[in-house]
């Protein structure tokens, strides 16, 4: 229960690694000290408030640091999203080119015979990486909210 609470607080903190580590250490000490004075974990949690409230109060005191990190995270998320769009774009462009190259003969209309490849087309890698980056960007964006 204590561990869950600390984990939840950690998720909501927007601080440097060093500050986050310190805040979580202090929180652990708060639980330990309370236990030494005969307080239950439940009563400590009732006093601390929700993890969201606790982390919010801490974030508020480090406002400039929090703001900087949020801006940096937003920029990083945007960069990942752009990379995803670029990868999918390259894939689509390559596919268009490929279908024209794969047509056999000089007929006025395309035949239904295409040259098949035995190995995995490296162009598909762009699609896979693009989708992966889009998922990462989406997860980062949700965390930012």
């Amino acid at each position: 229960m204590k561990e869950d609470y600390i984990k939840q607080v950690q998720k909501e903190l927007y601080l440097t690694r060093a500050h986050t580590k310190e805040v979580l250490r202090d929180l652990d000490e708060a639980f330990e000290s309370a236990a030494q004075h005969g307080e239950s974990v439940e009563s400590v949690i009732a006093r601390l408030g929700t993890p969201h409230e606790y982390a919010g109060a801490v974030n508020e005191q480090f406002a400039s640091e929090v703001l900087k990190r949020r801006v940096r995270r937003k920029a990083f998320t945007l960069l990942i999203a752009l990379a995803a769009v670029l990868c999918v774009g390259i894939f689509m462009y390559a596919q268009q080119q490929r279908s024209a190259d794969g047509v056999i003969g000089q007929a006025d209309a395309a035949t239904q015979i295409f040259v098949g490849g035995g190995t995995v087309d490296p162009v598909w890698l762009f699609l896979a990486v693009g989708i992966l980056l889009a998922i990462v960007a989406l997860l980062l964006w949700r965390k930012l909210k």
């Binding site: 202090d26 929180l27 601390l48 408030g49 109060a57 801490v58």
Partner: peptide
């Protein structure tokens, strides 16, 4: 007083 009020102020005083 609660930890959620006191610790954040202590961080600021330390900073």
């Amino acid at each position: 007083a609660r930890e959620g009020t006191i610790y954040p102020v202590l961080y600021r005083l330390q900073e």
